[in-house]
Structures are given as C-alpha cells and as structure tokens.
Design a protein around this nucleic acid. Structure first.
Length: 660
RNA sequence: GGGCUCAUAGCUCAGUUGGAUAGAGCAACGGAUUUCUAAUCCGUAGGUCGUAGGUUCGAACCCUACUGGGCCUGCCA
C-alpha cells in the first residue's frame, strides 16, 4: 500500500492550484512525510513555512487554507495545525484497519504493488576473485547486492544479477606458477582448492618478501631526501616565525621523515622475522623476481598458451565449486556468472575502438584514456600488451547493453574503487551508453576492533567459512542453553537445533552488515553480533517465532486459519494502532530504501516493527483478551506482523524459524 | 601536491536527504516472570552533533575555512 503517494496526491489537488512550477510542486509534495513526532501525528506536511515567500502570506494562514481545501476525511481522523505551520495528520483507525485487512488477504505480497513502470536493472555484486579464499570483505558486496537484487524484484522490476567473477587475473598466474614449481601432488589430488589456496599464499608471501627487501634501499634514499627537506622547512619556518603556513609545512615535512623511518623499521622487522623461515629464504633465492615470473604466467595464459589454458581449465571448476558452497550457505543466487574470462576475446576490439575514436592514446608504452578532472589516466592496455580490469569493465558494460539494454546498472563494489567507476562511467557515456543510469553502489570498509581493516591478530585475513562456522557455533550455544530451554519449555530435536543455529548464526552476520549505512565503514565485532540481543537479526527472528507461537496455540484451540485472513482488524488500543501504522508503511519503506539502495532502512524498519510488536505483546494479551472479537482482531494483527517480519527478512536474504 | 570520504552519548551506530524537545543498541543503574517463548518488557542516567563563520522562517544535514582520521592518486582488481 502506497500511503505516502496517496496522501501527497490529495495535497497535490490543492497545491497545484497555487504553484505553477512543476519542480517546485514536486519538491513541496516531498515535504509531506511520516511524522517523527509520533505523539503528535502519523504523517505531517511541512509545506506552509517554505511557501510563505512564494505566496506572500504567513505560514499559519497558508496552513489554514490548506486544511480547509484538502480532502482527507476518508483517510484521516484528524487534520490539525501545530507549531509554526505544520499540518498534522492522524489516520483514522477504520481506514488503517481496512488497509491492513487488504494486506492480510494477500499473504504473498502483503498488498505491495508492482512497479507501475518496471525498469530493467543489472546488479553486479559479490564478484570475488576465485582461487583466493573468500574473506569478510566479500560479505558486504554479496549481502548488500543480494538484498538490493531481491527487493527490486519484489517491487516488480526486471533484474539481472551478475557475479562478475575474477577468474582471469594475476592470481591465476600465481597459482599456475605455484602449481608448476611448488605443488604437493598428493594434497592437490585430495583437496585441490585447499592446495591451491596454500600455493596462493606461498607465492603471495614470497613476492611480498622480495618487494620488502627491494624497497629498503629506496626507503633509505627517500629518508635522506626527507631529512633534508625537513631541515630546510624547519630553517625556513625559523626565519619567518610568524608564517603559519611555513610552520605547518615544517611539521608535515618532519612527520613525513618520521613516517619513512618508521616504514624502514617495519620493513627491517619483517625481513628479520622472515630470516627464521628457511623455506621462504630458499624460495626467494631460487625464484628471484617472482612477481615478474607470475605476470609472465598470466600473460601466457592470456595469449592462449596451451599448458596454462589447460591448467586454468583444470583449476576453475573446483574453485567455483568452493565459492558456490559459500553462496549456498548464504542463500545467494545469481542469474549469470560470466566472469572476466568471458570477455577476453572482446578486449582488443575495445582498445581499437577507443583508439579509432581518438579517445585513447599511447603514453609511456601503454594505451591510456585521459579524462578531464583526473591526473591519472585510465589505462586500457599495459606496456607488455596485457589488458586490465578497466578494459574488461568496458567490454562487460557494452555486452550488458546489447544483451539486456538496462535502464539502471548497479555496481556493488568497495568505495575505494569510486574513482575507477567515475572514470569508467565517463568513458562509457562517451562511447554512447547514454540511456543507462550507471551507478556505483559503494560501501565502506569492514574494520577490526582496532579500527583497521579486519584481520586476525597474526595479521592474516580471516576466512569467510570459519567466520560463518563461528557464528553458527555461538548461536548453537544459545540454542542449547539449558536454563533458557527450561524456561521456554521448548524441546528441540538435534535437527531443529542445527537448523535454528544455522539460521540465526548466518542471519547475525548478514544483519550486522546490512544494518549499517552501506557508505560508512563499520567495525566488525563477533562478540557483539552473537550476543543476539538488541538490534540483531535474532531479535527479529525471535519476534517472528513469537507470532508463530501465538498462531499455533490459536489453531490448536480451534480457531480456523481462514479466520486469520481477509477480515476486519478493528484496532483500538495504542500499541495496536502503533504496530498497525508501522505495518502499513511496509511498501513506502521498501521504495524509499531503493531510492538510494540503502538496505539499512529495511533493517531499521524491521527492528522498529519487532519492538512495536514486543510492546504490543506485553500490553495486549491476544488469546486471553476480553472478547472473542478482540482475540480475532489481535490474532490477525499478530499474523500480519509475522508475515511482514518474515517477508522483510526474506528480502534481506535472512531466514526465519517457527520456533527458537 | 591533487581528489574522494568521514567526525553525533563511555563503546558501536541510526538520523526518512533542511523540519517541532537529536535517536537506538551495548555497557551502567533501578524495576517487571502463578499470565500467549525473559533471545523479552518498563524506567533512570548519559550530547556544545570536531571547531569557527555563513546561507534561511528553521541546520547534525547545504556553503566556506580550519583541525583530525581513512581511502585513492599510471601499468593489481
């Protein structure tokens, strides 16, 4: 039910006679919103104050004319003026009850309408590099993208979800090189992905060590320069003691000098700790310039070298299978999974096309597109002839345009790539992809409790699988807590327990991610997450289970399922009305959350709904209410609450259980 | 150097895109269970929304400057 647009259209009937400018009219209508002051109003129109200049009247007079003109008597029980000119609306309980009855008679969609003008979306999300173990950083793109995908579909749009797998990049050069030189055949035969993961880390570690060693002389040279600069600036600042800018420069130069020294010490410490690792030293010695060797393997793969292609084809299925295990567990599906490799044959044409349009030029041996407003160009072909992700991204967008002709193309990717996407979109528009709304749905970094990107104490990245396992394990502890089981009088089978723990544990991880505004960084704290109290998935899942518990008892007491739907609700008490009003807002909330692709608006809504239900639950007995009519009305409200919570969680990719 | 971004309660975060007395969870404190699941509820305390200006009927939100953090800044994705 689109309540907001209905109310706005009533106001538009009056406002349109006052305002000619359509832009101003629609801006004015957007000032009609759900009220924050719930003790004063359900909805409020903040339109009188901004119109005082335009109409040349005091706001209170405008508000009075508005209230006199607008037709709301069927919807509202009261329309009043307050403060400097706020128009406060209170919905009539009858109208509210009727709308909720409609939702109840449509349990699949809860009377949420399908988009009047459906759009075609491409949603690009998750997109991990295969052959690298997935870690917590991959959760955000996967979970946010999946929620957006599911919500847009529910709202009636055509959505193509694409997992743009990194299946063609440098990491394959790494594991191919590793496989050729360091593999443990027995381990590979038994568990190929684990062995490839080991090889990946082995190569990574060696390259990083070599880079560190090679970097020390450069650092030392820079330290000397920085020291000189620091001294010079200090001198200049001392010569002109009143110049604040020079003083600031001096501190900054000094700081840079200190930073470089610190970096050198860190590098030396890393080298020192590596010196105890005989295998590493040996590897580094026998495979000098490993980074270059790895790149060579990658370019051989791209050039079609038969041995490397064969290895790639051998590795890919098991790598994909591994990733799909995670998706299965997270209940995430994609329509397509073409991956970068799919576009490889198109890349030379992309570059030729850019050259033909004179958009790309040679520079330092690479082929680059220079764009206004950016220092660095977008490189589409490297010196050595290899293509980059920018090239692939262009090819991918062109392909999607031809295949789907999307109205909107969403890229759910880390905010660190925002400049890349700005450049990419700039190029895409220049080559004619103008009718697609290209949007980087960026998200912040997941941090550890030290405020730095999430890692364990030893510094290695935490694998996603083990993270999920831990959350499920912690959920299991709560499920099996004997005191709790005794109190709630529930008796779960082993299978029930497993199911509940999995649903609650995975839900906890997803919810923690989704409940933050996607644009901000957030601190990942397993301890808080698995408390399963307060603003968590478990709280909402628990509220849902309580609605089910009441419904089960009602059915057991002989109330027919048919009595629960499609009948009048007749809400009277405060907690009933507050909950009912909240349930009425489901559709408005969903569209609102998709106007800027913010799933946290959905979690916020569900949490609020669950709280209102808990409050209702405490204050309004359902089965033991005074009269059979009230019992039925409250049962229906309980049923609709359950349906709404379940649907909301489902749209976020979070499951529910009937008992917990 | 340039660009992007962030700064809100002790901690972790919301804040419906400029509306009324700035909210929630956790932690702290005090209450509630013969009553539909206490993974719950009710209450208390906690804030100069980084600083200083500006814009306007009205600013946590927009603009400018400053302070401090993060990220990006030509051949990884």
């Amino acid at each position: 039910m689109q309540v907001l647009s209905l109310i706005r259209s009533r106001f538009a009937d009056v406002l349109a006679t006052w305002i000619d400018d359509p832009a101003l009219l629609s801006a004015t209508l957007e000032r009609i919103v759900p009220s924050r002051e719930t003790h004063l109003a359900d909805y409020q129109a903040n339109v009188a104050m901004p119109l005082q200049k335009k109409l040349g009247k005091p706001p209170l007079a405008i508000a009075e004319e508005l209230v006199a003109g607008v037709k709301l008597s069927d919807i509202c029980s009261s329309v009043t003026i307050a403060g400097q000119g706020y128009v406060n609306l209170r919905l009539s309980p009858e109208w509210l009850s009727d709308r909720l009855s409609e939702a109840l008679s449509d349990p699949d969609r809860l009377a949420v309408s399908l988009a009047a003008t459906p759009k075609t979306y491409v949603v690009d999300f998750s997109s991990p590099n295969v052959a690298k173990p997935m870690h917590v950083g991959h959760v955000r793109s996967t979970v946010i993208g999946d929620a957006i995908n599911k919500i847009l579909r529910f709202l009636g749009h055509r959505v193509h979800s694409d997992n743009h797998l990194g299946d063609w990049g440098t990491q394959f050069g790494m594991i191919i090189y590793g496989y050729k030189h360091f593999r443990n055949q027995e381990a590979f035969d038994q568990a190929p992905v684990a062995e490839l993961g080991r090889l990946y880390r082995l190569i990574q570690q060696t390259i990083s060590y070599q880079d560190t060693v090679a970097n020390v002389p450069k650092l030392e040279a820079n330290i000397i320069k920085a020291e000189q600069k620091a001294n010079d600036s200090k001198q200049k600042a001392a010569d002109a003691p009143k110049d604040k800018k020079l003083a600031k420069e001096a501190t900054s130069a000094h700081q840079q000098w200190l930073d470089l020294q610190q970096q050198r010490l860190q590098a030396l410490a890393a080298i020192e700790s590596a010196s105890h690792d005989a295998d590493l030293l040996e590897r580094s010695k026998t495979h000098p310039e490993l980074g270059q060797r790895v790149l060579r393997e990658t370019s051989k793969l791209h050039e079609g070298d038969s041995e490397n292609i064969k290895l790639w084809e051998a590795f890919l299925p098991s790598c994909k299978a591994e990733i799909h295990n995670v998706y299965r567990r997270l209940n995430v599906q994609f329509d397509f999974e073409y991956g970068e490799s799919y576009y490889h044959d198109l890349l030379p044409m992309v570059v030729e096309d850019l050259l033909a349009r004179s958009m790309a030029v040679q520079s330092d041996g690479a082929i680059c597109v220079f764009l206004d407003g950016y220092e660095a160009p977008m490189i589409v072909r490297k010196q050595d002839g290899a293509f980059l992700y920018a090239t692939t991204d262009i090819a991918t967008a062109v392909f999607r345009e031809r295949e789907f002709a999307p109205d909107v193309s969403l890229y759910v990717v880390d905010h660190r790539q925002s400049e890349h996407f700005q450049k990419l979109f700039d190029v895409l528009r220049k080559i004619g992809l103008t009718h697609t709304d290209l949007k980087h749905v960026s998200f912040g970094t997941v941090l550890g409790d030290d405020g730095k990107p999430f890692k364990t104490r030893s510094g290695t990245i935490v694998g996603l699988e083990s993270l999920l396992d831990e959350a499920v394990e912690r959920a299991m502890q709560v499920v099996c807590d004997p005191e709790r089981l005794n109190r709630s009088g529930t008796d779960f089978s082993e299978e029930d327990r497993k199911n509940i723990a999995e649903t609650v544990g995975i839900g906890a991880i997803k919810y923690a991610d989704l409940s933050h505004n996607r644009t901000s960084n957030y601190v990942f704290d397993m301890n808080k997450m698995v408390l399963m109290e307060g603003n968590t998935a478990a709280y909402i899942q628990y509220s849902y289970a309580r609605t089910r518990s009441i419904i089960r008892k009602a059915l057991a007491e002989g109330i027919a399922q048919a009595d629960l739907g499609a009948r009048k609700l007749a809400l009277v008490e405060g907690p009933e009305l507050a909950l009912g009003l909240q349930l009425l807002r489901f559709e408005d909330m969903l569209s609102q959350s998709m106007s800027d692709y913010l799933p946290n608006m959905v979690t916020e809504y569900l949490f609020e709904t669950a709280k209102l239900f808990s409050s209702f639950y405490e204050q309004c007995p359902v089965l033991k209410a005074d009269s059979p009519d009230v019992v039925l009305a409250r049962l229906r409200l309980t049923e609709l609450t359950g349906l709404t919570l379940k649907k909301g969680l489902e749209l976020l990719g979070i499951g529910t259980v009937e008992r917990m």
